[in-house]
Computed example of a mutant assay.
Amino acid sequence: MKKLLIMIITATILFVVSSLKAQEFSGQAVYFSKTVMKGMKMKINGVEMSEAEQEKFEQRMNKMNEKTFFLDFNKYESVYYEEQKLDAPTSKSGMVFSSSDTEKIYKEIKTNQKMAEKDFFGKEFLIVDSLPNWNWQLEGETKKIGDYTCYKAVSIKKATSEELADYEESKKKQEQSKTSFFMMSEPKDRVTTVWYTPEIPVSQGPGEFWGLPGLILEASFDDTTILCSKVVINPKEKIRINKPKKGKKITEKEYDKIVEDKLSEYKDGDGVIQIKIDKN
């Protein structure tokens, strides 16, 4: 009986120590995000932009879509946020051309919770929802990113019938319209490819990515690539994971509706988004 008690006490101590070590494990990863705009057709008062105008516009957009992000993480939590910079310039129409809104994304694996702090057109929102399910397909391919051996994983999100129907309707309106607007791209299956390393045993990654047996160091989807340039494990200055708190609390679905309603303010009678382009 005495031996059994000693074994139970020993096992309990080892469990507590192991748990404390897991909680103390923390780090910070730095990511560079780049979105490349290619071949987006545009019209100005019914006339397509020249190749030179198109190239100049794409260069400006691509430069604006180069960003640096930080991921602070421990064993079960992470917060992803953008490097602080001056406000992005706006067009004469007042619209901000950017690949994403200013945001801070918090992920908690134990409770399967996501919290995102977003600033959209000067209004702050706190989005609280479940973590997305990526349904990763693990593949055997490996490569080195810095000093870490990484493994490939792929997620495929099928284009929905609603997206295809919206595209066909928008295409008809765009062909008839004489206003200035972006040409909507045909919806396709969205393939996301990531590279993760089990050498950093946290199920975290940039943005909303998570759910793999190791930190995600690279992600590519659509025309965007996110690449980790630096990882610091257990830095001298303790990493603190602070949950987002600012903004009106809503769900992801409610936020999407707010964005849709706001963009509708920029649509003309044909239902397409009007823009003004400064050629200088």
Rank of each mutant, 00 (worst) to 15 (best):
M1F: 15
I6E: 10
T10L: 15
A11Y: 09
V17P: 04
F25K: 08
S26V: 08
G27P: 02
A29G: 06
A52F: 02
K56F: 13
T68D: 02
D72F: 08
F73G: 05
N74K: 07
S91Q: 14
G94Q: 11
S100L: 06
E103V: 14
E103D: 10
I109E: 04
T111V: 08
D119Y: 10
V128Y: 01
L131W: 09
Q137T: 15
Q137S: 13
Q137G: 11
L138F: 07
E139I: 14
K144G: 02
K144M: 14
K144Y: 08
S161D: 07
L164I: 10
Y167S: 01
E175K: 12
F181D: 02
V191W: 03
V191C: 09
T192R: 03
P198Q: 05
I200Q: 06
V202Q: 06
S203L: 08
P206M: 04
E208P: 04
G214M: 02
G214Y: 02
L217T: 00
L217W: 01
S220L: 10
S220V: 13
K230G: 06
V232C: 02
I233Q: 02
R240P: 13
I250C: 09
T251S: 13
D256P: 03
K257M: 11
D261W: 01
L263W: 15
I277K: 12
